[in-house]
Design a protein around this nucleic acid. Structure first.
Length: 261
DNA sequence: CTGGGGAAGGGGCCC
DNA sequence: AGGGCCCCTTCCCCA
């Protein structure tokens, strides 16, 4: 069943996008998806056009996919993108629940906790460390340099951001420039569209090493891995019962933990 | 009712 | 400085 209820419609009537600075932006297909790279000049759909300039959407169709497959790569595939090598399932054994316990958790990322001797740039305000000056500068701009903080307000909603980049990214959630030609769903970012495309292709590159299941989404695999663990990640403070997902814990708490489970 | 899967949104960090 | 990717989280559906 389509989950269009979760997808903001691209043709909202009260949208009046006119962000000229975003006009020239193109949406790229990430290289790790099809092992090719393409820059796609786009033709806005009539129903989302206004008399003002508009943020051009990506329109997916089979012809586009063909273009992607035949396009000359414009840059090398990112080494930090282990994801998709053809349609070969990925071995995510490193994402076992044990690793999750010792590694990243739902806690906010803590640069200091992963600090190495190379992280020699320290924030005087909060003592966090960064390996590069650029990293420290961005941190200070976002969090610890209040006198330099600026407010970039979204014209579509009440949200404010401390950087133009953050605002631009947020605005995409309003303009939804990435449109699936197959079903018409619109997404804010190319990789969200990529994930969506997998629902059409059936591609599931993330496989569980404990069973034969495979997943289209890494996070879903991570959640699945919890089901193989006796002691799950999310624990009720009242009854100590553990759950594989935070949502299940929340549901457990909301329905009233009796403390005796 | 509960647990798990599918799909998607969005913030933060790294390059 | 900005794009890409990772990760967490949420929501809904279904068995």
């Amino acid at each position: 069943m389509p989950r269009s209820f979760l997808v903001k419609k691209h043709f909202s009537a009260n949208k009046k996008p006119n962000y000229s600075e975003l006009e020239s932006q193109r949406v790229y297909i990430a290289p790790y998806l099809y092992d090719k790279y393409a820059s796609i000049p786009l033709i806005p759909q009539p129903e989302i056009l206004s008399t003002t300039a508009y943020y051009p959407p990506v329109v997916w169709d089979t012809g586009l996919i063909t273009t992607i497959f035949t396009a000359e790569p414009d840059f090398q595939s990112s080494p930090t993108s282990p994801a998709i090598e053809g349609s070969k399932p990925l071995d995510l054994s490193s994402f076992s629940s044990e690793d999750d316990e010792s590694g990243k958790t739902s806690d906010p990322p803590s640069p200091a906790s992963s600090a190495t001797e190379a992280e020699k740039f320290h924030c005087g305000q909060c003592n966090k460390s960064y390996s590069t000056f650029a990293g420290l500068s961005k941190h200070k701009q976002l969090h610890c340099d209040s006198q330099n903080r600026k407010s970039f307000s979204c014209k579509y909603c009440e949200k404010e951001y401390v950087s133009l980049g953050a605002l631009k990214m947020h605005i995409r959630s309003h303009t939804l420039p990435c449109v699936c030609k197959i079903c018409g769903k619109a997404f804010s970012r190319p990789w969200l569209l990529q994930g969506h495309i997998r629902t059409h292709t059936g591609e599931k590159p993330f496989s569980c090493t404990h069973c034969n299941r495979a997943f289209a989404d890494r996070s879903n695999l991570r959640a699945h891995l919890q089901t193989h663990s006796d002691v799950k990640k999310y624990q009720c403070k009242t009854c100590s019962r553990t759950f594989s997902r935070m949502s299940l814990l929340h549901k457990h708490e909301e329905t009233g933990c009796s403390g005796g489970h």
